[in-house]
Design a protein around this nucleic acid. Structure first.
Lengths: 336, 336
DNA sequence: TTGAAAGCGCTAACAC
DNA sequence: GTGTTAGCGCTTTCAA
């Protein structure tokens, strides 16, 4: 590929071409007041025809208020993340910040790479990180870092905590109140590696135990985090426990895949088998019956994370940042 | 809010602290070879404990290979865009580029603002722009700019063209082949302002005319680009044309909203009313019956746009960049 | 293997 | 209203 990059046109070129100093050009470009309107006009026109564009690097070096944050998500295609992203973009825009987006696919190597990269490229990171090592790296990176799902981690990292325990409790109690006793779980297979405390799976076991309901590990099926993954996991589950009456899924995506498959198998939802999701995705309203779920305000999650990043950028230490918590709310639709 | 920003730690501080020149620090940080391993180790450690992070601005000023592109989309929450974004992120990552994301909500003022902003902040723009003025501004901005939906515009702007004509033709012919003659359209209300040639609406009228099918403007209902918008538009449509047998929608989101509403109204799909979408979103597979649609390879769209941006960054003029076209493919599911 | 000098493109501060 | 000077933090020469 013959690269044919044009040499950069600088403020000096424009200054020379218009016979003024580069300071005056700078004034024109930046809409400063101390400049003759005619001069400004002349300079602006010359700049435009010459193809001048200010260098963000030179500018950033001089001004100290150009802030860019890095948003690290696991998967743009999972509808959970666009909603978080919307919140982050909006909150960042209000502050005049730029947002660079990175996708990790929850891969171990990729998460580490991205954290490294961020350190060089942005002023603060807002990240959804699965792997413990990546979280440690982020926490010790000398850079303001906010976790989008802090889980039960120590206050050494800033982040938003989603109250999965409250959510799980609320959800399972609702299932129990509807008369279900044989409740299975479809877990996210990749969350096994997370090494984080209080995973949804442990909470499920705990809460089930509290209600004296039968569970052991074969009530839990790992599922790939996708529609198809949920569908496949449901089949595996039914092969082991045909008598299950309700399924509690790791998230809505898995729940939807499972519910769809259940209906294809001829089961009635919720009469034969009930489904409870987690996340409150809007696509849960499109399926039949609409998915009952524990709704998380994902937009707010993004906004809170940006607020924490702002505190860190202002000099706060991670352990001084007040904890932000998102409480899942039971959204009763029709699948339970 | 008491801002308490720490003064920046520079390479000079690290140099002084370790008793070497800043050159040597630079070598250590950048993993250059001409440096004593022990010295490197010592420096790296000092840098870490001092909290040193290189300034991207200072670096960017010196090196010329740090590229950032701006991705401008209409709405992160519309599932069309995450797929495009995935393609853009992947292609950009392969090239080592950063991607800054902006959301316009298709608002006129916002689009103009974002184009202005981009000019200062990134090296090239990849954008989904609705409004003519914003497109003109982008095209004349002195900056490499690629449109994600070039439509039938002149070659003065680079961009990917989605062959809506081919798609519309394919779709309508399929409806006709299924025996439909009274086919209505649910148009996107905001595309009215676009002033672009070859809109889906005009294509609908044209192709319907070619088949000698009855149409006039009341067969077209404008819909807000959302599930609820599609639902509302369907009701309006049925109020005017109870005898319609098929609905061709501007896109899948509108089609899904309409189909959902039709079923709530007690209509059978496709027996009483058939639905044809456009875009090929994966959420179309979740509804019942799964939505027949004209599938667009959105990921590829994003990749092609990045490729064009690369050509422009290498010095090509917009009108030299070879045209890239995406052909919609009829995806027959079950709603027709 | 290390250091010194130069300069990337811009704006802030101050002079005129 | 405009120009001059200095310097932001770094990497790239080049010299030692």
């Amino acid at each position: 590929m013959p690269t044919n990059r044009k040499p950069r046109i600088t403020i000096d070129h424009v200054a020379r071409a218009t016979g003024v100093s580069r300071q005056t050009v700078s004034r024109a470009i930046n809409n400063k007041s101390e400049i003759d309107p005619d001069t400004r006009q002349r300079i602006l026109e010359a700049a435009r025809t010459m193809g001048y564009r200010p260098s963000r690097f030179a500018r950033g070096l001089v001004r100290q208020d150009l802030i860019t944050i890095g948003l690290v998500i696991a998967d743009v295609l999972n509808p959970f993340f666009p909603e978080v992203t919307a919140g982050v973009l909006e909150a960042a825009e209000r502050r005049g910040w730029q947002v660079v987006v990175y996708n990790t696919g929850s891969e171990y190597r990729k998460e580490l790479e991205v954290v490294d990269m961020l350190t060089d490229q942005v002023d603060a990171g807002v990240a959804f990180l699965l792997h413990h090592d990546a979280i440690v790296k982020a926490a010790t990176s000398n850079m303001p870092f906010v976790l989008l799902d802090k889980g039960g981690r120590a206050p050494a990292v800033a982040g938003v905590r989603i109250d999965f325990e409250g959510g799980t409790r609320q959800g399972l109690e609702y299932l129990v109140s509807k008369g279900h006793r044989r409740i299975a779980m479809l877990d996210d297979e990749s969350s096994r590696v997370a090494q984080a405390p209080n995973t949804r799976r442990e909470l499920y076991l705990k809460v089930m135990g509290e209600h004296g309901l039968p569970v052991n590990s074969d009530w839990i099926q790992p599922a790939h985090n996708s529609i198809d993954g949920g569908a496949a996991a449901l089949e595996r589950l039914l092969a082991v426990h045909r008598d299950v009456t309700a399924v509690f899924a790791y998230n809505d995506v898995i729940a939807i895949g499972a519910q769809l498959r259940a209906r294809h198998l001829g089961l009635r939802v919720p009469e034969d088998l009930a489904f409870l999701g987690f996340d409150g995705l809007s696509i849960g309203e499109l399926v039949e019956p609409p998915l009952t779920t524990l709704h998380i305000d994902k937009r707010r999650l993004g906004e809170l994370a940006v607020e924490q990043a702002a505190l860190l950028l202002n000099g706060a230490e991670a352990d001084e940042v007040p904890e932000a918590v998102i409480e899942p709310q039971l959204a009763i639709r029709a699948s339970v």
